[in-house]
Design a protein around this nucleic acid. Structure first.
Lengths: 216, 216
DNA sequence: ACCTGAACACCGTTCAAGT
DNA sequence: ACCTGAACACCGTTCAAGT
């Protein structure tokens, strides 16, 4: 008998940051949010045990952010080659959004805190350099990247939004909107609608940026 | 002596939804979030008293949403006249974002819940109709409006983000990004940077939409 | 170093009791 | 109808005690 329930310091650690991250992510995916005690329950551990590995709730949020950042595809930014900058930006945006799309409920949790992962920093670094080379002044390029990122985050939030985005109350008369909504997939195909909006916006943004290129 | 502290049902009501909404908004503006007990304290009332006027925390969030919605300017959508649709969309987007800009911390709180105010519904209604008249098929117009809204929400979130968006750790080598960040106002003028990004994105989106107009 | 169990302050919500 | 006060379940965090 190992009396596992009573042991104060087990021979092999029960916890580590990765197990905590995975449990947290699973709970977020299921319930839309997480709780420190819920993580502990999922790992058959006391709540206070988590504090030996992670700096409380804020620390768990950092873990979740790392998870998302790791899911992004940065390789494409390495071989920028001769591909046009529009294409690189589009890939960047899609991979960014897809990393969130895999875990939509994570977006609202991360939305308010700072990006500080070195990987992300250097990704931005490359994008800015690329835009500079394409002929955009630095001031503009930063505004462009920020605008693109804002669009991506907003689009990711859209994925986490409740199923019916626009509840039409009987009171309001909205025949045109109703028609537009009818002409659109519902429930399970909601993601498709979100995808279409994302691609429409991305295409428009890139077209607009291209038009604003000074050297034209 | 009125023994106010003991009275169970005061002659004049101490609370109403508007006072609750105002208190909540003030707390959100100050602290970045609100708490039901905090509202009660601000109004010199017992926490449980609030539940006679509002459906708990979720109800308070609805009140906050109404506050924001009321702050938007819909008049411009009434007299669509002969103004080009791009101009109308731009006004719409700016007024939408400005309503959030007045209370940035409100954005993360509202970001996940559904829009159902009739005023908002009918505003979308008019925009969709206008785009249809301009020559866009309904399917496209809905994607466009959604994309624009996502961009606006993302830009509004940007306003609520912590002051230093991109912390550059010493480890990461990011000279170009650093230069771009240097060329930009800091601290108090952060709003200006956000504004620039917003205007850049808005202009690009509208230019891109215009380019995609089928009847060209 | 790593886990437990007890403890604390705090939040969201309910409900009987009063006027 | 409207406010109070007590009560409950739950969360985030700390810390001494054990191995």
């Amino acid at each position: 008998m190992t009396e596992a329930a009573e042991m104060a310091r087990p021979r092999v650690a029960l916890l580590d940051r990765e197990r905590i991250a995975n449990a947290a992510l699973a709970i977020v995916d299921e319930t839309g949010d997480f709780t420190v005690p819920a993580i502990a329950r999922a790992l058959n551990v006391q709540t206070s045990s988590l504090y030996h590995h992670v700096d409380g709730r804020a620390g768990v949020i950092e873990l979740l952010r790392e998870k998302v950042v790791d899911a992004m595809d940065y390789d494409q930014l390495h071989r920028i080659d001769q591909r046009p900058w529009q294409e690189v930006l589009a890939c960047f945006a899609r991979s960014y959004r897809e990393a969130f799309a895999a875990h939509p409920h994570i977006v609202p949790i991360l939305a308010t805190t700072t990006v500080r992962a070195p990987l992300v920093i250097s990704a931005y670094e490359r994008v800015i350099a690329m835009l500079h080379e394409a002929g955009f002044p630095e001031r503009d390029s930063l505004a462009m990247v920020t605008a693109l990122e804002n669009f991506i985050i907003g689009s990711a939030l859209d994925l986490a939004a409740p199923p019916v985005m626009w509840e039409i109350p009987e009171a309001a008369e909205a025949p045109e909107l109703a028609k537009a909504l009818e002409a659109v997939p519902r429930d399970a195909e909601r993601a498709e609608r979100a995808d279409r909006a994302f691609e429409a916006g991305l295409a428009a943004l890139l077209a607009g940026f291209t038009e604003s290129l000074p050297s034209r």
